[in-house]
Design a binder for these strands. Structure first.
Lengths: 256, 256
DNA sequence: TCAAAAGTGTTGGCTGTACACCCATGG
DNA sequence: CCATGGGTGTACAGCCAACACTTTTGA
């Protein structure tokens, strides 16, 4: 038992980790082993320890619940509406980032019954005041890329199979997504995310952009803009499949 | 006494309110009546009450300590490094905004011995790792505006008269300033601040921009850009001093 | 030789920036 | 009539978006 002269809200951290899988923008979620929201999917996160910085708490909770380490985050903001946690007044500081799903070895631990990537499209939308909105549902695994220029309209029918998240985590994810899109517009800021493996082709990087921004990009413009930023440099050539081999690039300040 | 099963950090809010006075960018500070940092200047702020949203806590604390109300904030982020508060682990959620100093009626209350606007230039700089940096000191009340294009270099000598702030408040102010500058670049976002009174001339608004951005702007470009955004509309003409009268404008969605 | 992805330049529109002179007023 | 700030337009540069064909490879 811990005693304080004045009441204190609890403080948690929550982590939004985006990635791309099969041309879908996905988020890393854990299935809660404990109440509240037992059995529901939620963002990895948990309570901040005494004298622990927010960044450390974030890294620790992520490691405990998903097995991931060595991930660099950006702070998204604090969420403190009363009622956002049924256990009582809880303030959550949210962080977000983007990593390469393939390089992430997941291991459910601690309060997590399960860890998995979920396409954003499969998550039930937050009710934005008023009627319950139709959940987004894609016709195919292939994302909006190449769909014409505008994001695909979600189908109108409330298809079941959409996942309701615990707490206000859907809202946090929405804000993180907006923030991610914002950062991607500037290549310099975008470079602080692990959008692609250490060595990558232009097309690979471009595909990530297209999935996150939800619209197709022009190959030549993309290439030109990125090279103009002088953030990447050529490495050695690759080959693959029945195609012309592509030039590999790496980030300029890269250690490996 | 309040008891919890696990230890909890304390949660506070801090408010950075910028304004312009005599061509200086100023911040609203309170002189602390209580320990820690008793007698030192600090941002208005304080502990979050049970079941109080962060925004409400922010508004309440501001009102209690400075007498200001009806101020709309933007969240800056959470600051939670252990050691930032000598009383123990404390997480602060910071907010910021810009208001018109002239329309603000200040009244020190609560834990504040005094409330006052302070030019940013008078605040001691944060030590950025390494040697103690020279505090900024302006030669005149006139800010950097018209100084050539680049911000003025601070003089090298550690002039006394600079104010050391409590806690990590200097750092918070620095981040808030960066964020404010960022927002001002887009007129749409800038409109969410009270940069000028309800009716204002182009020059008045431009002067605010120049003080915040710390460099002079071109009159014609400024005017053109702002009118192109369709955010303001002409009101009725004014006159003043021995000059040609200036057109008054107001924000388009404005109530009054 | 075919399918599939890689690679490559130019153009037009828009946006930002630099720049100088006349105007209306009060004193 | 003069000092003071108000008001106006144009020209160039850089950035972004649109656009189509050739190249290289494996099958």
């Amino acid at each position: 038992m811990y005693r304080y002269e004045y009441p204190r809200p609890a403080v948690t951290v929550d982590v939004v980790i985006f990635s791309m899988r099969a041309d879908d923008l996905v988020v890393l979620l854990v299935k809660r082993k404990l109440a509240p929201y037992k059995g529901q999917w939620a963002l990895p996160g948990g309570f901040v320890n005494p004298n622990e910085s927010l960044d450390r708490a974030c890294a620790r909770e992520l490691e405990e619940e998903t097995g991931l380490s060595n991930v660099r985050f950006q702070q998204l903001g604090a969420f403190g509406d009363p009622g956002r946690d049924p256990r009582g007044h809880t303030i959550s500081v949210a962080f977000f980032t983007f990593i390469v799903a393939e390089s992430a070895i997941l291991r459910a631990g601690d309060d997590a019954a399960e860890v998995a990537w979920h396409p954003l499209a499969n998550l039930a939308k937050e009710l934005p005041t008023g009627t319950h909105p139709a959940p987004v549902r894609r016709t195919k695994a292939r994302a909006v890329v190449g769909k014409g220029g505008k994001p695909a309209r979600p189908s109108r029918a409330t298809k079941k199979g959409t996942i309701d998240l615990a707490f206000d985590h859907r809202r946090i994810i929405d804000m993180a997504q907006m923030c991610l899109v914002e950062r991607l517009r500037d290549p310099t800021r975008a470079a602080s995310f692990d959008l692609v493996p250490s060595h990558f082709t232009m097309s690979e990087l471009q595909r990530v952009y297209e999935v996150v921004l939800q619209h197709p990009l022009d190959k030549r413009n993309f290439r030109a803009k990125l090279l103009a930023a002088h953030l990447i440099e050529p490495a050695s050539a690759s080959r693959r499949g029945p195609h012309r081999p592509a030039q590999l690039y790496r980030w300029k300040g890269a250690a490996r």
